[in-house]
Design a binder for these strands. Structure first.
Lengths: 251, 251
DNA sequence: AGGGTCATTTGATCCATATCAACACGCCGG
DNA sequence: CCGGCGTGTTGATATGGATCAAATGACCCT
């Protein structure tokens, strides 16, 4: 897999074209569907969006073990996915921003296998899975698109495997920052200046590092003139330098 | 996620009931489908299996970048999935044994994003994806089942994330052995005595460890009376002891 | 404004695993 | 039978990141 691709694929994202105005007007038609459907089909889709739901910072959209019945289109806000193990330790398994789809982890098990926790006040649209399944049979493009979204999730995770399996700390952080930047750009947000919504500890948990290591890497990048960091605010100053760190990869 | 579940979910496996005689008589009906379909539907399914293909040890079933058009049911043999990065380094992203499904990595991208390499002489059945998609619309249970298989892949990978993100070397090896054992059991093979099909280096690559570390862990488990290892042959002597190592997890 | 809590930074030390190195074993082809 | 190569084992050493520790700063609540 080309490295550039790896970056691109690290989110369950939707193509820019599929996303126009997604946040301004949340319905399935705009958030998670491919173009090329007939008007009648689009109308059918609109009937699928069940409810909008507001989730306050720190609250869970769903929790591991809860029955799975819907997937969610994030209208606004920011989430982390978290798995808690028996011994009480937990691990962040992903971050999701506005315009992305959440809840795929539940498909096929009948229940969710991670918690989705809002990192800031957020709003989502529920999409009942049974309706989606039903409609998938009727609308050709929808099924294909949905499989695409699912498989992107698979590919995303295999990108994370590389992160965790072969990259070293600074490379992981660089990859993380570049990935955030790309995902923000894909949603029309500024890709070079943004607020991290998560703590150093959450970043570390996601990347398989300790919070101190994350902090040190940020400091080092700052001192090296690659980024400017202040608390959760990040400005990418030298994106090529960052890419070099990411690609440096000792052989 | 319960730890036991984690183990269970680490393969793209199929329920035992779905699998009866899978290897003796490879067709889609037996290998990858849920019960409960009508005879007519089953007959339709049989038409989907395109070709059987033999792959010699060391050869690739498919390679990253090749166009994706089929998924594969492994009739016999053993495969590893491998991703090669730009700098020439590669990582093993999974192992697949007889009765499991291979090739899901290609769905949605139109091309495969990893190599599937046979670790021993193997035989697979191709299942053209377009046919599968088509039929999914016609047969209710098939679509649901297929989503299930895909999402199991997602869950599997999140199990691997835990491996790579939070476990230490010996825990990873224990988890790996227990997972192999379970998957073998699910296919009716002896779960306590088996041949690893892969080298220490391949195991290490999969688990994010170096081959020496894998070797040392095996030696230690051997000395501790948990397993007997000789080259690629493994006998699990004290499976509870192994589970303890796996669950030991320093907090 | 004052006090508590949580997030972050930075330094010092430790340790698990990588790395380097040497040797043993099995397998294959000559 | 020999030599070479791939694989595996084991020991010695190096090191990246974890861990421990302390201080600072941001934010919230009253």
């Amino acid at each position: 897999m080309a490295r550039a691709e790896l970056l691109r694929q690290q989110s369950t994202h939707l193509a820019l074209a599929e996303l126009k105005a997604a946040c301004a007007n949340c319905n399935l038609r705009e958030i998670c569907l491919p173009a090329g459907l007939t008007t009648a089909e689009l109308d059918q889709l609109d009937t699928m969006v069940d409810v909008r739901r507001k989730i306050k910072r720190g609250e869970s959209l769903y929790r591991a073990g809860e029955p799975f019945d819907s997937i969610y289109a994030i209208r606004s806000g920011f989430f982390k996915a978290r798995v808690t193990y028996e011994d009480g330790r937990d691990q962040v398994t992903g971050f999701s921003m506005a315009g992305e789809i959440l809840g795929l982890d539940g498909i096929g098990q009948g229940k969710h296998n991670c918690d989705a926790v809002a990192l800031e006040d957020s709003e989502v649209c529920s999409i009942p899975y049974s309706r989606l399944e039903e409609l998938s049979r009727e609308i050709n493009g929808l099924q294909r698109h949905f499989h695409k979204v699912m498989s992107r999730e698979i590919v995303r995770e295999s990108g994370v495997m590389m992160l965790l399996g072969v990259m070293r700390a600074e490379e992981r952080i660089a990859a993380f920052l570049l990935n955030m930047s790309q995902r923000l750009a894909a949603r029309g947000y500024s890709p070079l200046e943004f607020h991290l919504r998560m703590t150093r500890e959450e970043i570390g948990s996601y990347l398989g590092l300790k919070l101190e290591t994350v902090s040190r890497a940020f400091s080092k990048f700052h001192n090296d003139g690659l980024i400017q960091v202040e608390q959760k605010f990040v400005r990418i100053v030298d994106i090529d330098g960052l890419k070099e760190v990411y690609a440096h990869h000792v052989s």
